[in-house]
């Protein structure tokens, strides 16, 4: 890379997203456990999620963080284990990032669409 600090910045970005995601993963798991163990029907779950602006904020942030964090980890695996060239690994990582963003935000929209302003 032309900028010698490029890798270190990506490293920093991956660690920061990890720190931010840690409490969110716990929140996400707690939500799943609550939703699946409290005998709520799919319809009543959707009714609750679609009336909560907080859920929109929480899951949009979560999706963005995952879309940054996961491709950075996969990029390292592609370079170190699969021996992909840096250019190829970078391109696939960008595609993965966009893919995760698209899928994730579509999921957020489906769950919480009615709560959007």
């Amino acid at each position: 890379m032309s900028n010698p600090m490029f890798e270190m910045r990506l490293y920093l970005l991956q660690r920061l997203t990890a720190i931010l995601m840690l409490p969110m993963v716990i929140g996400h798991l707690a939500t799943i456990l609550y939703a699946t163990r409290s005998e709520l029907t799919a319809a009543s779950i959707l009714e609750r999620t679609q009336s909560s602006p907080w859920l929109v904020v929480f899951y949009t942030a979560f999706v963005v963080l995952v879309s940054i964090h996961a491709p950075l980890g996969l990029r390292k695996i592609m370079g170190e284990w699969l021996r992909f060239s840096p250019k190829l690994a970078n391109r696939i990582s960008v595609l993965l990032c966009l893919g995760f963003l698209g899928l994730g935000l579509r999921g957020v929209w489906a769950l919480t669409g009615a709560a959007m302003p």
């Binding site: 890379m1 010698p4 600090m5 490029f6 890798e7 270190m8 990506l10 490293y11």
Partner: peptide, 12 residues
């Protein structure tokens, strides 16, 4: 420090 945190450096 710049070398140690460069491309082949500690972040790997």
């Amino acid at each position: 420090m710049a070398a140690a945190m460069g491309d082949g450096g500690c972040g790997n």
